[in-house]
Design a protein around this nucleic acid. Structure first.
Length: 270
DNA sequence: AGTACGTCCTGATCGC
DNA sequence: TGCGATCAGGACGTAC
């Protein structure tokens, strides 16, 4: 499931594919439920003739500012299985392609989404759509104090709070587990029980987990990086096989936190 | 207000 | 072997 590194990866790949500057000539929407605002028909009509100026990202949301008249922002959330591809119109589309947007210069933008959890909007301002989100984890504004503030007074499991975008935008199930593993924290610890030192350790672990997925984080160089999940230590756990903790070789424990599959080491994470 | 749970979806996997 | 049941989860809505 795409989390911050994968969404950023998608963003860069679209930039590399030349999407900025391309003009959308039409829209084939085959699953209207993914269109949240306005209606699917209005979105399809509203995108026609618009030029994509840039591709931005906030948390897990992709924002495509458009020139021309009409709502100025095409916003996309990939959900769990969403992918965006720029392919020649002559190329056979993936069978799970839900929407396609032909471009003026030949190729088309395709939205492939097996489980249909992705979402689209066409609105004047991202603020109409985007929920309250924390500062980007790589920005200076993502401080220990910010994180501690969002944990304050919260008895919910720390992992549950890590999944809230207002706590750490861009984090999802996999990187939440990974961050807690790197921090040596039990996922079910009540968030407000964490000491300030533990919060500081967790903040750094979040940055480290995401950084590992990026390879070397460097916006300016726009470089390729390895497939992010290979960077995860807690990731490769088939449902019924308990892998060993890479630190102490204890079998990893599988539980559910907030109805999410959760893996941790009962010895290293306390 | 904070917390928990149901809902949307379908491919992959499980179990009889 | 085949087929129905179950699982997976991001974010929102609803209920307590």
């Amino acid at each position: 499931m795409p989390e911050l590194p994968e969404v950023e990866n998608t963003r860069r790949n679209l930039v590399r594919a030349g999407l900025p500057g391309s003009t959308i000539t039409g829209a084939n929407i085959t699953w209207a439920n993914t269109v949240k605002k306005p209606s699917a028909a209005e979105l399809a009509e509203g995108l026609k003739g618009r030029t994509i100026q840039d591709i931005e990202r906030q948390g897990k949301y992709l924002i495509l500012p458009l020139s021309g008249s009409g709502p100025t922002n095409f916003i996309i959330h990939l959900g769990m299985t969403g992918r965006l591809q720029v392919q020649p119109q002559s190329q056979e589309p993936d069978p799970m392609t839900r929407h396609s947007f032909p471009l003026e210069d030949g190729p088309e933008l395709r939205f492939v989404d097996g489980r249909k959890f992705g979402k689209l909007w066409l609105v004047d301002s991202p603020t109409e759509v985007l929920p309250t989100m924390s500062p980007e984890p790589f920005e200076d504004e993502f401080t220990v104090e910010t994180l501690a503030e969002s944990f304050s007074g919260r008895k919910a499991p720390v992992k549950a709070l890590l999944l809230e975008q207002s706590t750490v935008c861009g984090l999802g199930n996999l990187y939440a587990d990974e961050s807690l593993f790197l921090a040596g924290l039990h996922p079910e610890r009540p968030a407000s029980d964490l000491s300030i030192d533990e919060v500081a350790t967790l903040r750094q672990a979040i940055i480290d987990a995401l950084s590992a997925a990026y390879g070397v984080y460097d916006r300016a160089r726009d470089q390729l990086w390895p497939d992010p999940p290979t960077a995860l230590t807690t990731w490769s756990h088939p449902r019924d096989i308990k892998a060993a903790c890479p630190n102490c070789e204890t079998s990893m424990t599988a539980i559910r936190v907030q109805a999410r599959g959760t893996y941790f080491c009962s010895k290293c994470q306390v």
